[in-house]
Write a protein that binds this DNA or RNA. Structure first.
Length: 975
DNA sequence: ATCCTCCCCTAC
DNA sequence: TAAGGTAGGGGAGGAT
């Protein structure tokens, strides 16, 4: 089982990966290969890897020799965990990298001379307190790390640092491995030595088929598609989190504006803003390749492909492979599908396929069936495309350079692209598409900066390039479709603004295949109708398209081919399903093996569900089974070959995330199919109809928070440290602006505010201060505020005494009844039952909605904690206390789950949230109030549902009334 | 009409 | 050798 997230809970990015075992395996590999090849002089650099940047003394070549001799690893191109060895670096480079790991080469030579690893910090090329490593040393237990005598007098922190940087998580394994290598400086392949026992066991465990216990982890660790998918999902969540935890002030905009103004050709603002929005689409150019050659200038300008295959290398022969038959089956199926869709006789259809260029099985040179994940533009010029087989690609371009995957590198670059240090420091109106692609609604940003689209693009692209080392392209347009097509035009390494005047001409020549949503099937269908371009398709009527393609798809295409797209960017995503599947390496001999694998896959799904904190109600098993006409041996090694797909699902009586239930259900579904396990070629498990769970807010968990200490801590301390990022809330940091014209150095947003009239609810009019009005004074001694950030808190003066009067409960407030208006999503179970059940959403969270499931779960996971059941805390008491005893992160989490629940809001929940926020106000925790209220506002805006809007209005009224009581002023709200 | 289920398709 | 995952949208057709 892969374990995720438990080791590095403080670092979201690491938590995502968590492939501990694989990492360790990789590490062991590094050691063993070295040990096999070199006769080592020492183990000084065990666990240390370096990358040499620029001219050094000793030279890169000499270091390359030295490192393995002393137990270290030398990388020809940079990996994320490397120490960077450099004697000097140009300033521009330094600006754009973390200098925490840049070390002078003397570190290496001195360490060797001293026969021990010296503290690298004495050799840092740049000593900048701001960029010093911020290690959470307490995360690693000291007693695990004592690296005994083998490391000589190595500074303990240095050991820790080296280890952390190299992601050596399992100290035990690390030690064992090192010791083994220490014991014998001999090739580990010698079968006589004890170590070899170990080694040979290990090589046995190189997972070949799904029967191997390590197969899932091994496979996922090498699967590009898995990485792409997980990274994408992670980044979407990341954007959710950013928006949730951010106050939406963007101090970095000032710098951005300066940088833009520093461009030579400062233009005045174009008429960008005449018609609605400006959407930007950012896409890294051939992402995997760009990351892979960041430190391989020798490959720049050459045809390069990222692939598992090493090139024209001989492959072992496999009996029974019949590529011709297998490929033909695919083609026939495709032809059949097309014939059915278009009415063209199947025999008249000729299918082109990516297998066309691939050679016979026994052709060593052009026969590789390794897929190309990404290829450079030079390779594309030769006709190579992503997804093509290596054999075919080599035929098109015999000097194609194959480079390996660098999944850590992709992760690192993606993170750079999405973290505060690039786009997110300027705006959070970001929709994450994938690890290398995003949409940004630039309307507000451009308005604020008053710069041209082109200048903004130039500076942003440059910034991304310097920070990631990879080129990207950006496209701009009035909607997401236009911006996307613009990017396509801009590539590679360019930018393009598709202005509204250009759209019509531009669209005319766009190939239908280039429209998002038009894939192979649709493109072929449309081609069979006689259309290949948007211009051509524009001649068809809406009705005709809908008849051929269905209502939605038809309408979508009708609009798309005219450049129209009314789909807004989605800044917040809610998960609807969780799944795991493996369609590679599946070769079972008997049912037992099959069920064992299903069990492992269930564990995988379960752990993903836990991470996402969801329960699910519907479980689907997906099987790929060899088609009877297909050869038993597949064309691709361990591939699935030509298969039939079986989907079977089962609805559970209750939502669950119980591993036992999932496993049982999946195996039972599988048994029912009565499929010969020998014929299985792929297995997948999917869980749908999700609902949120917060296991920590079960009864036992909650009573902890009613502990007196916690309460005191929350309410009385002036300096508290409960921010999950470790930030300290410190009143001394608080600044408040008083009187006169607002200077607004802190909140660029405010400028907009003052420029643009308020459109929304008329209530808001009262909250706004008009530009000339004086601001009130707030007693800063009573405000808690986050460390290190400037204030965005603004309090408007009270408008008359009216606002002090008690708040009337709006009579239209009708949350207990389902609105007859539009429905969103699937109501849980059925609408009636959800309304009549006694428990509301918050209660479910607080007291355990799926009490059975959860408590079982809870007991399993918290055997030690369950002792704290102070039964005096009855539900009733908790009800009275509401949320006020909870840490605010919990409330935020709860609020999020509530908004994501897909249910109709209930008044009691609304009241609870409002009550909590009011208490925060009384507690003068304005910072948190501000974040929560704005989060609520953004989310309810997005939900665009009158019931939720009422929730917001109600909560805001409550908050503002408390504000008036406490401060005599209202909280300033972003609009 | 409006749903649910079982697909297929698309995107990265 | 090779690592063909995963989430979401939507259509077809049957159930309500």
């Amino acid at each position: 089982m892969r374990r995720r997230g438990d080791k590095f809970p403080d670092n979201g990015f690491e938590a995502w990966g968590g492939y501990m075992q694989a990492k360790i395996a990789k590490l062991e590999d590094q050691f063993s290969t070295k040990a096999e090849k070199e006769s080592k002089l020492s183990n000084i650099f065990n666990g240390v890897s370096i990358f040499v940047n620029g001219f050094t003394k000793p030279s890169a070549d000499e270091l390359k020799e030295l490192m393995p001799q002393h137990g270290g690893v030398y990388h020809t191109y940079q990996r994320s965990n490397d120490f960077i060895i450099a004697s000097n670096l140009p300033d521009t480079k330094v600006k754009n990298m973390s200098t925490a790991k840049v070390v002078r080469p003397e570190w290496i030579t001195d360490s060797i001379a001293a026969k021990q690893l010296l503290d690298y910090r004495q050799y840092l090329l740049y000593k900048n307190s701001r960029t010093q490593p911020q290690l959470k040393f307490n995360k690693i237990k000291k007693d695990h790390v004592k690296c005994d005598t083998q490391n000589g007098g190595m500074h303990e922190d240095a050991i820790l640092y080296a280890k952390e940087m190299n992601h050596i998580i399992n100290e035990y394994t690390f030690k064992e491995t090192s010791k083994e290598l220490d014991m014998c400086n001999v090739p580990t392949s010698n079968p006589k030595l004890p170590v070899v026992e170990n080694k040979s066991k290990k090589s046995d465990s190189v997972a070949k088929t799904a029967v191997d216990p390590n197969f899932i982890s091994e496979f996922y660790n090498n699967s590009r598609l898995h990485h792409i998918s997980q990274l994408g999902a992670f980044l979407k969540q990341h954007v959710n989190d950013l928006r949730e935890n951010n106050d939406f002030t963007f101090p970095a905009r000032a710098v951005l504006k300066k940088n833009i103004q520093a461009l030579n050709n400062v233009q005045q603002i174009e008429a960008n803003f005449d018609s609605g929005k400006i959407i930007m689409h950012i896409d890294m150019d051939c992402f995997f390749v760009s990351v892979g050659i960041r430190n391989r200038p020798d490959l720049l300008g050459k045809p390069v492909a990222v692939t598992h295959s090493k090139g024209k290398q001989g492959r072992p022969k496999r009996e029974g492979v019949d590529r011709y038959t297998e490929f033909n089956l695919y083609k026939q199926k495709q032809a059949h599908k097309l014939g059915k869709a278009t009415g063209i006789p199947v025999k008249d259809i000729e299918i082109k396929s990516r297998v066309d260029l691939i050679a016979d099985e026994d052709d060593d040179e052009y026969g590789s069936m390794s897929e190309i994940a990404s290829c450079s533009y030079e390779a594309r010029a030769k006709g190579i495309t992503n997804g093509m087989f290596m054999g075919a690609a080599l035929r098109l371009c015999p000097n194609l350079q194959a480079i390996p995957y660098d999944f850590d590198g992709y992760k690192e670059v993606a993170y750079t692209l999405y973290e505060y240090n690039t786009i997110a420091q300027y705006t959070l109106d970001v929709e994450a598409v994938s690890c290398d692609e995003m949409y940004v609604d630039c309307t507000e940003l451009l308005n604020d900066l008053k710069v041209s689209v082109q200048d903004l693009a130039t500076v942003l692209r440059q910034e991304i390039k310097t920070k990631t080392g990879c080129p990207c392209s950006t496209g701009f347009g009035g909607n997401r479709l236009q911006s996307r097509l613009a990017t396509k035009r801009a590539k590679p390494d360019g930018q393009f603004f598709l202005t509204s005047e250009l759209v019509e001409d531009f669209m005319f020549n766009i190939h239908l295949k280039d429209l998002p949503g038009v894939g192979r099937q649709m493109a072929q269908k449309l081609e069979s109708l006689g259309h290949q371009t948007c211009g051509s398709l524009q001649t068809l009527t809406l009705g005709l398209l809908q008849r051929h393609l269905g209502n939605k798809t038809g309408a979508q295409l009708f609009n798309q081919c005219r450049g129209r797209d009314s789909n807004p960017l989605t800044f917040h995503t809610v998960r609807k399903s969780v799944s795991a599947e493996v369609n590679y390496g599946i070769r079972f001999e008997n049912n037992a093996q099959c069920y064992e694998f299903l069990k492992q896959l269930s564990v995988e799904v379960h752990s993903r569900m836990q991470q996402l904190k969801v329960l699910g109600k519907c479980i689907t098993l997906r099987l790929m089974v060899r088609d009877e006409k297909a050869p038993i041996e597949t064309a691709k090694f361990m591939g699935h070959g030509f298969c039939n797909v079986i989907n079977k699902s089962s609805s559970l009586p209750n939502s669950t995330n119980d591993i036992e239930i999932i496993t049982k259900e999946v195996i039972s579904l599988c048994k029912k199919q009565k499929i010969d396990p020998k014929e299985m070629r792929g297995v997948g498990i999917q869980v749908t109809r999700l609902e949120p769970l917060n296991a920590k807010l079960t009864k036992g968990g909650i009573s902890k928070f009613f502990n007196k200490n916690v309460t005191q801590h929350t309410f009385n301390s002036k300096i508290i440290s409960e921010d999950e990022n470790g930030a300290i809330f410190d009143i001394n940091q608080f600044k408040f602006e008083d009187g006169g014209e607002p200077k607004l150095p802190i909140t660029p947003k405010k400028e907009n505010k003052l420029l643009s009239p308020i459109k929304k609810s008329p209530k808001f009019g009262l909250l706004k201060s008009s530009p000339g009005k004086k601001r009130g004074i707030l007693d800063i001694n009573q405000i808690k505020f986050k460390d290190g950030r400037e204030s965005k808190l603004l309090i408007t003066p009270i408008k008359g005494n009216k606002l002090l009067s008690p708040i009337k409960k709006s009579p239209k407030f009708s949350l207990l009844k389902p609105s007859p208006g539009k429905k969103r999503g699937r109501p849980p179970n059925n609408a009636k039952s959800s309304l009549t059940t006694s428990k509301n959403f918050m209660d479910k969270f607080l007291y355990g909605q799926n009490q059975v499931n959860e408590q079982i779960q809870y007991k399993k996971e918290n055997k030690d904690q369950i002792l704290c059941n102070d039964e005096k805390n009855t539900n009733e008491e908790l009800s009275q206390q509401g949320l006020s005893g909870l840490p605010w992160e919990k409330v935020r989490e709860l609020l999020r789950a509530w908004l994501d629940s897909g249910q109709s809001p209930k008044f009691c929940d609304t009241k609870m949230i409002a009550g909590y926020l009011s208490k925060l106000v009384l507690n003068k925790d304005i910072d948190k109030v501000y974040i929560l209220v704005n989060y609520l506002k953004r989310r309810t805006d997005e939900l665009n549902n009158s019931m939720w809007t009422e929730v917001y209005d109600y909560v805001l009224e409550e908050v503002q009334s408390s504000m008036v009581v406490v401060y005599g002023k209202k909280l300033w709200i972003n609009d």
